[in-house]
Amino acid sequence: MVVIEVDGFEQWRSHSRELLKRKISPEKVTWCQPRSQQTLLVGDSDQQLLMQPVVCENPKIPRQFLSIAQQVACYRDDTRWSLLYSIAWRLVFEDKYLLNHKVDPQVSALFTMRKSIGRDKHKMEAFVRFRQINIFDESDHDGNVEYYLSWFEPQHYILPLVTPFFVKRFYNMHWSILTPDTCAHWDTKNLTYTQGVSKPSDTVDKLEELWKVYYANIFNPARLKLKAMQSEMPKKYWKNLPEAPLIAELSRSAGKRTHIMINEQETTQNSKISQSRYVQKSQKILRNNRDIDNI
């Protein structure tokens, strides 16, 4: 039995390479977080591993698998490392086309995990909200820097997977994304990571009021479809979305607003003739009014 400590993809990858070289089968390997109980019991296992003879000098793993493994490594479940190793083992020693075998239980689990990671990534790119704060920076010549701060709670350990997206998009901004697992900071040149934090206290960004005005008015009450909305924007994300508190009231009043639109017509409706006169008049005003720029 070999016990391996692992806390990231690169580490898993280099350990796996050594294990595969020695053809150590998946059942004989236990993967665990660094400094957990198991390693304390078993002791220094990396050394034991390296003492075993190499039987396969250059185990070949398809590149496609490595790119999937890199993503699945962010899955929030400790069984991921052993699953990844089992599949790597089977790719090397059983069937290099294993990944095409979509109905295989392990392959199917792998793709389910990747899908979950993909969705989490996509949702994080969508639902991160920055708040602008002004901070004083001595190194900057005018002192004040517009800084953008975000707090987000991803389902998986995906921050390193999404930072390239934010760097490309907001290359010329100073920003930080804080999560409970780890934090990323961008200063227009360098990306740095620091340890995770707990939720910081709220700061105020005036723009949020405008965003809420937009959200409330782009909604069409005649088309209320709460289920469709929730399947794409599940409630677990709501706590960090500034617009979410509006949902309840918008939904509640939707029926009434629609009813008014449909039924009030009869009372406010103009007759056809006066309507067409009104049209002609207002069109004429608009056409002639050179001051319209100032309205």
């Binding site: 997206f165 998009r169 009450p221 209320l224 479809k225 469709a228 918008l250």
Partner: peptide, 25 residues
């Protein structure tokens, strides 16, 4: 993307991103 300019923004050739959903879905 914004790496070559002074501003913000990026687009991709694939799917867009929905940043929020109104109660009309």
């Amino acid at each position: 993307d914004s790496r070559t300019g002074k501003g913000v923004g990026s687009t991709s050739s694939g799917m867009g991103i929905c940043h929020s959903y109104a109660p009309d879905g």
